[in-house]
Design a protein around this nucleic acid. Structure first.
Lengths: 377, 377
DNA sequence: CATTTGGCTGAATCATTTC
DNA sequence: AGAAATGATTCAGCCAAAT
């Protein structure tokens, strides 16, 4: 019953761990996921059936007919049936995810509320809901609603304690140096990107734009990661993964979609390591305890520290602790205590006199770090 | 236990039907709603507790503390408890709604999925999900997520067969003549609009901007309608309802919020009828059968009609039907048949010669309507 | 060749009245 | 109650044809 389509890439062997990398598995999502090793996948992107309930055709004002989604795979008998289906595949997905893995799912108001509730009930931990704003949505022809101009994505960690990948700096950089927001603007998938068959008909009714997957993979995976898409369709996830130097595993039931996806992905040159490297986060800097400054003689025991306004003073003790009146403890704790504040960053709060000028003790820490860097280089 | 706060407006008597119009009911939402007559309210706007799951304080990069929502009324033991609460008030709300009534609810990813699923399960009919994009959201201080820059609203009819109010033309007009979309951009509530107490502290942690309610009430109510808000807070819904000439009924448990809301609303001059009238939809025009044009001699039996390209022709018969080759029937049916189309608006498709020029027969209908108007005026 | 115009289309829970 | 008739209504983007 379960069948593996021809592998698209010769890198399949790289993954060790018996994963069918860069491959499309043909058949049922749940069965195939249950056949994969537990805790093996970094990210899942899922574009499940939306359960649209369209009971009549729609015509435009010019009387032309809208070619709407009416495929069998989008039909469910009831919300209860849809919920059962959703919870089964979400549970199977959770088993396949690494402990620090995460999942994206996309939907519209027809199904997204049920999916979100299911995620919460299954102990996924919601990280963000993200709105894909469509620059060119289909209008509301009857003038009876607001133009349905967006779809909703949910980004969820496998569990509350998962430490998921989030390339904060890369996102910020690509967003004019301001934090990437939860509302994204992209056009729908049309033109050359939209796959058409020999008759010029669209191969898949709801092909997603590559730009959407591009952002998702750039934001929440690293090069070499394994991305699973249990509703692979015509393979947008696989195409973008390949371009970005990530591995994919696709699962798709419809043979016609699989064929189109294989052809599509085969024509893509895999992303080269340098090109797909995500913007490095500020290097995780070495932890330098305040005490080591004293140990290394950069600050003498007994030195008076003070805040920039010189309202508060404290004395450095040999063990790296501070004393200020009745208060004693770390540079952070004493900084908070003297101000009556909840918290305080002692490194920037406390200053000292150094060769006639006032400087935060953080400057001393920087010096230490610079030396450490030279040593390790 | 249930108490009614001083009515804000003397118009309270207007509503007949025993409704406590323009009044804040102090106490539990569900009890108070159950005390209102069934099928009595046009619209419900609800901003329920979000069930935020903040288990530790949040500090800004400069170590200052974020004044987050940590009120008791936002705490629930589990999703199950939150669901029970939600389904109870949503069921009570549904009973109070008129058959053609509708409900708006706002939330974030913490609670909106559960609310959406509950609405569907309770046989509400979802019309749109709407995204409030915040122009000035709080950044994500930790750099661990996308900036949470939106909240989600759901607009739902009481049932699938409800014929809800939607002021399509008013929305389109206020949006530069293009359809209003499902993503709305507003700043969060700050500045003079934000209610502060004597100490300059914000009275309510999540006061909604009036602009949001302004659009909601303009879009989905008519002047004089009754709007119920079961989580009234500091009364944004009441304030905007009063400005727009709608009636409100507020329900709120916290006395401090009620006091602030009463003061706030009392200072507002009720909107005058002319000012708050929504842009009239094209007046519902009198139905004019094609046959009556023939009866009144505006079109003679035997007249040749044709489409704009003069590819198709048809002859008018005395009973108002058309004949074109083998086809006969109404102007719409014959228009569709000659083109092989599914449907056709005969009024704009068929043309005739009138004093040497070509004109659609719809022009004749317009003339008839103008005469009818004179008669009725 | 550059520019304009017209046609086509996209995850849509898209009507109301009369017979 | 259900079928049929009637009638109100569209936006951005892409592409092909025309100017």
């Amino acid at each position: 019953m379960l069948r593996k389509a021809r592998s698209v890439s010769s890198t399949a062997a790289m993954g060790a761990r018996n994963l069918p990398l860069d491959t499309i598995l043909v058949g049922d999502s749940i069965s195939h996921m249950n056949g994969l090793p537990a805790g093996s996948v970094d990210l899942i992107f899922a574009d499940p059936p939306y359960n649209l309930q369209l009971d009549q055709g729609l015509t435009r004002p010019d009387q032309s007919r809208v070619d709407a989604v009416d495929d069998d795979w989008d039909k469910f008998e009831s919300f209860a049936h849809y919920d059962t289906f959703s919870r089964e595949w979400l549970a199977a997905a959770r088993r396949v995810l690494k402990p620090d893995g995460a999942l994206w799912v996309i939907g519209s108001y027809h199904n997204i509320f049920r999916l979100g509730a299911a995620l919460q009930d299954l102990d996924y931990w919601l990280l963000n809901d993200v709105v894909w704003r469509k620059s060119n949505p289909m209008p509301n022809f009857r003038g009876t609603r607001f133009t349905n101009a967006h779809e909703t994505l949910i980004w969820a960690a496998r569990s509350q304690k998962s430490r998921v990948t989030f390339n904060y700096e890369a996102m910020k950089l690509s967003n004019d140096e301001t934090q990437m927001r939860s509302d994204w603007l992209f056009p729908i998938c049309t033109g050359a990107e939209r796959l058409k068959d020999e008759d010029g008909e669209k191969v898949h009714p709801t092909q997603k734009p590559e730009a959407l997957l591009f952002r998702i993979l750039n934001a929440t995976t690293n090069p070499g990661d394994v991305v699973l898409d249990p509703f692979f369709g015509t393979g947008t996830t696989g195409a973008v993964a390949r371009k970005l130097g990530r591995h994919f595993i696709g699962i798709e039931r419809e043979e016609s979609y699989v064929a189109a996806a294989l052809k599509r992905i085969a024509s893509i040159r895999p992303g080269q390591r340098e090109a797909v490297q995500i913007t490095t986060p500020k290097r995780r800097e070495a932890r330098v305890p305040f005490g080591s400054l004293v140990e290394q003689g950069l600050i003498e025991p007994g030195t008076q520290l003070f805040d920039p306004t010189r309202r508060y003073f404290a004395m450095v003790r040999a063990d790296g602790s501070l004393v200020s009146g009745p208060h004693q403890g770390s540079i952070h704790k004493v900084g908070a205590l003297v101000q009556g504040a909840e918290a305080c960053n002692g490194w920037t709060f406390w200053h000292h006199e150094s060769r006639g000028r006032t400087a935060p003790i953080d400057e001393l820490r920087s010096n230490i770090r610079a030396q450490l860097e030279l040593l390790s280089a």
